[in-house]
Design a protein around this nucleic acid. Structure first.
Lengths: 138, 138
DNA sequence: ACTACAATGCAACATTGTTGCAAAATATTT
DNA sequence: AAATATTTTGCAACAATGTTGCATTGTAGT
């Protein structure tokens, strides 16, 4: 799959900076989801901690990445599909988090079943978080 | 519904202390889920912050309460059903978090549909987090 | 009431996240 | 291509959240 980092930034009207290029590159390369700490670690001392926070925030606002709710309430991020662009997320897919290695996957192919809620509740988003063991940790 | 605080503590082989009684009482009374900050706030200066952390931890270990994954990755806790007792959680129910007021509900009556995952993934727990507007905030 | 054990409070620390502002980098205009 | 306007960055300081060790206090069992 082709994924142009510069184009993605331009498409979202973001100026092209070193940190944005590098952090977006990490997401494109990453197999699973990334936590703030992962990014801080993998990018070395290259960027300030605050810059990473702000970059992640910007990417979320623009719909480039989305946050993943996890069973242990650690904050993780993953690339959005194109459909998310424009600040409106359409992330009704299933997330899987491995109990052993902690790797988090987006299972894009599995759709979230629609639930009928009690009267008076309206739904804006449905997240499904599955915990268990991934392929490697069986 | 009858819920004896002292009995619950005894059943879980916990010694009866002021903080445990008070915090468990807050959960029993609470309509929705509670965050650490809620408890710290509602119990005033009665208990040390550290005691609250440790009490919550103990309750989770014993299966008295469970953590709720939320879309904004804030840590919340709610009472478990009896089935959870003994440290093994069976919380495959749906959680709802209001985008407006932040109140979090356990929708015990709605069961989580079983999903078929790709080969090589085994499931230990499935959490469903629905965001939207609750009755009061419509 | 005495003893053994467990829980609490305090202090200190670690981690995580936020805000204001000057300096630097990027984008835009001429 | 240079000058200007705008955005982003890094730093510092701070706030919130969570953790650990240890002496003191409270609870449970005899």
């Amino acid at each position: 799959m082709h994924y142009s980092i510069i184009e993605t930034l331009k498409k979202n009207q973001l100026s092209i900076t070193d940190s944005r290029k590098k952090i977006l590159e990490l997401f494109v390369k990453a197999r699973g989801a990334l936590a703030h700490a992962d990014i801080e670690h993998e990018s070395g001392t290259e960027f300030d901690r605050v810059t990473i926070y702000r970059t992640l925030q910007t990417f979320v606002e623009k719909g480039i990445i989305h946050t993943i709710p996890t069973a242990d309430n650690s904050v993780r991020y993953a690339l959005c599909k194109d459909a998310c662009a424009g600040g409106h997320h359409h992330d009704d897919h299933v997330h899987f988090m491995c109990d052993d290695c902690g790797t988090t996957y987006c299972l894009d192919n599995i759709s979230v079943p629609k639930l009928s809620l009690p009267d008076g509740f309206s739904v804006s988003q449905t997240d499904v978080v599955v915990s268990g063991k991934c392929r490697k940790c069986q």
